[in-house]
Design a protein around this nucleic acid. Structure first.
Length: 254
DNA sequence: ATGTCGGACAGGGTCCGA
């Protein structure tokens, strides 16, 4: 079984690439972020024609998430229960016995901004909700664009980025709090190439220079960890002529 | 490199967000 996450930065633009990618990587479930589509504009027919069921939660211009799966997702949840949030950032469902939670975590803009305050509150609400989700679903995967680089080795220039957004102590503490719930960073279960990133700024020839961050993650519950046999970032779509700024991350379960 | 994308609004160029 394979699960994946990909911030597509506009599904309207990236749909052909998504369909190509699914043809090459017929994963069992995939969560998308930054679809940037209201639900009435979601390309359901095209995705179903590719052999996937799909549930989604979108809004105009910003954010927007989706869960694609070969088997039907059940017990679907949109956004964090109990959190009043106008931003479409979470979709969850149970696929083949695995609770799949897809998230587009807030960017946070800058550590002294109002958006950072929102990010902190959102992260706390996510943590509180996941604690109860884990109590109900021992087999759980949390994946998406976390907008957090958990450690310095996840940053191409940790000195320049020290204390900057994605790298603050507060964000990293929230990431560790998620691990403390009983989740494991699947990517770090395996030896990985040094300088492995999942996002490269569109500017400054960042991809060509491999100047990026690892901010897209797949966390698995402890019950699921023994099933994890591989986890990798697929850089290939980032080489497209008109790419998303993020690359997909894939986890393989036996 | 305040360096590029994508969407909205508007029907071009400018703004916001990332």
């Amino acid at each position: 079984m394979q699960l994946a996450t990909w911030n597509v930065n506009s599904l309207a633009v990236r749909l052909p690439q998504l369909l190509d990618w699914l043809a090459a990587h017929p994963v069992d479930a995939l969560v998308l972020q930054e679809t940037k589509l209201t639900d009435d504009k979601f390309p359901r027919a095209e995705i179903e024609a590719a052999g996937y069921r799909v549930v989604f939660h979108g809004q105009k211009t910003y954010n927007g998430v989706a869960l694609l799966s070969r088997s039907e997702a059940t017990d679907v949840v949109r956004n964090i229960p109990g959190l009043a949030d106008e931003q479409a950032r979470v979709i969850a469902g149970t696929v083949d016995g695995v609770r799949v939670v897809g998230g587009y975590f807030p960017n946070g803009q800058a550590p002294d901004s109002e958006k950072f305050v929102y990010k902190m509150g959102w992260l706390q609400a996510l943590q509180d909700w996941l604690r109860s989700e884990l109590a109900r679903h021992t087999q759980l995967v949390l994946m998406g664009d976390f907008n957090i680089a958990p450690e310095d080795r996840d940053v191409y220039d940790p000195v320049a980025w020290a204390g900057q957004i994605h790298c603050t102590d507060q964000e990293r503490a929230h990431f560790r709090a998620l691990l403390d719930l009983g989740l494991v960073d699947a990517f770090r279960l395996f030896e990985q190439p040094p300088k492995s990133w999942s996002w490269w700024d569109y500017r400054n020839l960042a991809f060509r220079k491999n100047q990026g961050l690892r901010i897209d993650h797949i966390l698995v519950s402890q019950a699921l960890q023994p099933r994890v046999s591989a986890c990798e970032i697929d850089k290939a779509p980032r080489k497209n002529e008109r790419p998303s700024d993020h690359a997909p991350v894939i986890v393989t379960l036996v």
